[in-house]
Amino acid sequence: MLTTIAKVLKILNSESQPGQISMALSFSMVVGLTPLLSPHNLLFLLVALLFRVNLSAFILGLAIFKGVAYLLDPLFHWIGLSILTAKPMEGLWTVLYNATLWRIERFNNSVLMGSLLFSLFLFVPVYLILNLMIRQYRERVLEWVRKTRIMKVFTASKLYKAYHSLSEWGGTK
């Protein structure tokens, strides 16, 4: 838990743009909440790697959202089943069902459909809210956190230095 908090602080305190962090977390939300081995996750992974988002935030967010996904599975199942069995949508789903690409995607699974819709629906709001929160944090809390003893000890550690040098590649610039 402490490690996770430290990692969060590390990311928040980094020189990454708030947009890079919140975008990474939004991507990780989609990948984390939907079944991991789904083909659409490859696309999100490609986007996360190709665009300059904070990879540390992406990996951390993935771990957190994956845990949350297990708790939300019943909700995803309910959403997915409702959408998939909705009469007005039947035509669309039938067309998709007959397309190989979508069959590979396994869109007709209730949990996958529910989680994908849920995460896509929250993608923009989460991005905007996180962006706002990071900005607020940096403006009002960051200085105070940097001055705390625990942060000083942490930033002076070898682990932090090694991590810092590696994370240079991960999106700061």
Binding site: L84, N98, N108, S110, V111
Partner: peptide, 18 residues
């Protein structure tokens, strides 16, 4: 649409006319 429970998987697969 037909709803078939897979042997071991989360959720259910809904089948549509092919």
């Amino acid at each position: 649409p037909e709803v078939i429970k897979p042997i071991r998987a989360k959720g259910v697969d809904v089948r549509f006319k092919e």
